[in-house]
Design a protein around this nucleic acid. Structure first.
Ligand code: SF4
Ligand code: SF4
Lengths: 129, 129
DNA sequence: AAGAATCAATACCATATTGGTATGCTATAG
DNA sequence: CTATAGCATACCAATATGGTATTGATTCTT
């Protein structure tokens, strides 16, 4: 339980590779080096790019590079870029509409746990992994 | 992201109710009080019972009660009873078979994060929620 | 012994999510 | 101009999930 998705998982792998090289890397190279299927890499990098995690360059010699140093990118940033805001329960994210929330008094507790997990994930940088 | 399932979520609600009463409670009452559909309550309690979280009693005046005091049941116990072992990535659970694990060097990092999350969830008791 | 209450176990289904793929379009270096 | 490489979107198959239904077993009460 509480698994992150495969795409998010691979995103970290890809980001780690980007960080390790420091240069602009094309999707084809990323796929070859990480053994993640090309089309999947494409999808992941697009999301990361749209969320400002990486910069993209088109055209010949284009590719991707990290937007920040690997040591200052947090794990939670990448995870949230891939899968949306961290929320362990429905009621944690603002605008929750759990059917029984009216009668449930655990929201506080979950909120607190959510914060703690967020804290862990935000204190771990890409280079820490 | 990182949401727990609805059934696990409800399991905590039900367990909290059981803890708050301290007596043996029938499914019908649990459903009425928590506003969780009867058939769903049945399914959840069965799993909790099979995993030793609650004791069950059949026959007239039967029902369920917590197997331990609410203050000594941890959140992670209930979550794992409902959704299996906590593992943030595939490689964390022993016997992982991620396709690229051979070329991935993030296992260590994830394992460490997994332990930290486990620690949070195991330091929170049912009554803390 | 009978009958009602109550849990056990399993099977079933509809829907949502996920992982993964394909394709045509746009931008840029040279 | 053209080859390269990312952008955007649509699509699909497989799985997981939430939720429901049904039949059987057990126990209390009378
Ligand atoms: S309100 Fe209670 S039940 Fe609904 S999501 Fe929040 S915690 Fe879970
Ligand atoms: S091996 Fe790397 S990619 Fe595979 S699951 Fe573990 S972390 Fe994710």
């Amino acid at each position: 339980m509480l698994k992150i998705g495969k795409l998010a998982d691979y995103a970290l792998v890809l980001a780690e590779y980007l960080g390790s090289t420091g240069r602009i890397v094309a999707i084809s190279e990323l796929s070859q080096e990480t053994h993640i299927p090309l089309a999947t890499v494409r999808k992941i990098l697009l999301r990361l790019s749209q969320n400002g995690i990486v910069y993209s360059y088109r055209g010949v010699n284009g590719g991707y590079e990290l937007a920040k140093a690997a040591s200052s990118i947090t794990v939670v940033e990448i995870l949230e870029a891939m899968e949306g805001p961290l929320s362990i329960t429905e009621c944690v994210s603002t605008g929750s509409e759990c059917k029984i929330s009216k009668y449930c008094n655990l929201q506080r507790g979950w909120c607190s746990i959510n914060e703690k997990i967020f804290s862990i994930l935000s204190r771990t940088s890409l280079s820490d992994l």
